[in-house]
Nucleic acid binder design. Structure first.
Lengths: 211, 211
DNA sequence: ATATTGGATATACATACTGTATACTCAACT
DNA sequence: AGTTGAGTATACAGTATGTATATCCAATAT
């Protein structure tokens, strides 16, 4: 008795490599169109595909949907955006230094990501308009709040009460929206970081000093 | 010699009144769909028209385009949102009181506008995705920066240098994004206002105290 | 009373975007 | 030599914005 056709499955080297490369090209294209380039076409799967030299259906093959592409872009950006330094920040013994470095890491993160200017503005707007995308973005940004919770616990070991409040304030001060608002008048990313550092420092002092 | 047909133009009472009423109905519908109601359909001209009991083309008649509708919504909201108190705030002789009232006015403004919850989140997202809408929204929010410039001038009469910097920081602290970020964990609008007031107060103290 | 006007409607059309379905091409692997 | 899998070609459905044309009807003007 002969089994007719056992579907033989693959695990191919070159095939996968090529696929990864087109996937990477699509991500680059998406990041380009999410930037604030002036002559660039608006962000749509069609335009992303064209920019990547690929069919729109290939985008669907790789990323399932527009939402999937956006999530992948965010993760891609996060990976190479300096957020990998965070473990080192947490290892920092001096809590004040750790907090300063934390602020620094995120200011550089918000300030842009290589290619075509900061992409967070458009990205955030697109995310807000789709509830599910908003939810998955929230999952990712809440990690920052978790990190701040840990730092605040080290900062106020004998917590009175409102340490959650301090966490929320620091979360707001280190968020992208604050960074963007302070970037008015062509203020450089470094100058914005100085302002954020001062706001954070004074706030921490207020909560630590008994208030 | 008789002039054939002078196009007789109107200035009609009842017609205009009826038109104003449908216009108002459309605005209400738009605000409803911009809110965060859960069972509501998404914001689109078609859904706005349906909600208003009107044809989509009537929306175009009244507001030219989606952008026009959004701008009209913002102006409508601004008019009845307490921003009319601002002149009184400026008339306030005590500058510290004036600044506190300024913060209070905007916190209440951001917190919601009658109908169906706060509409600024969706509104801001939609505005950011269309450059022209973004520009017209910026025109409107820059008034807040102008106001703050005036207040800061009164606050630091013998201005050293960085008063523009203080304006930008206060602008960021009193913006919608800050309000939204601090509204985490179901914090009430009043509680958020307290936090903003403290941030503003400490920042002003820092710039006034020499530093 | 009759003609006109202006707001609103009905219907149709052009364009663009997301998402799905089916059949096909071609290089990589067994 | 045959199969697999990433990518393509083409088509279709549903929704969105925006434009064009003809029509309805009550509020006005003569």
């Amino acid at each position: 008795m002969i089994v007719k056709s056992t579907p033989r499955s693959y695990s191919s080297p070159a095939r996968a490599a090529a696929a990864d490369e087109t996937r990477a090209r699509i991500l680059v294209a998406a990041r380009t169109l999410l930037g604030d380039g002036k002559g660039l076409p608006p962000f749509s799967l069609d335009n992303v595909a064209k920019q990547a030299g690929v069919t729109r259906l290939t985008v669907y093959n790789q990323f399932e949907s527009k939402r999937g592409l956006l999530e992948a872009v965010f993760d891609d950006v996060a990976e190479e955006g300096g957020l990998t330094e965070l473990p080192a920040v947490f290892a920092e013994p001096d809590i004040d230094v750790a907090l300063r470095r934390f602020v620094s890491v995120f200011c550089r993160f918000w300030s842009g990501h290589g290619s075509a200017g900061p992409l967070m503005p458009k990205f955030g707007a697109l995310a807000k308009l789709d509830p599910e995308t908003a939810a998955s973005l929230r999952l990712r940004t809440e990690r920052r709040r978790q990190s701040l919770t840990v730092l605040v616990k080290r900062l106020l070991p004998d917590a009175p009460k409102p340490s959650a409040e301090l966490v929320d304030v620091l979360f707001a001060l280190t968020g992208f929206e604050m960074f963007e608002a302070l970037s008015a008048r062509n203020r450089s990313a470094a100058a914005v970081e100085v302002l954020v550092q001062e706001l954070v420092a004074q706030t921490v002092a207020r909560y630590r000093g008994g208030k």
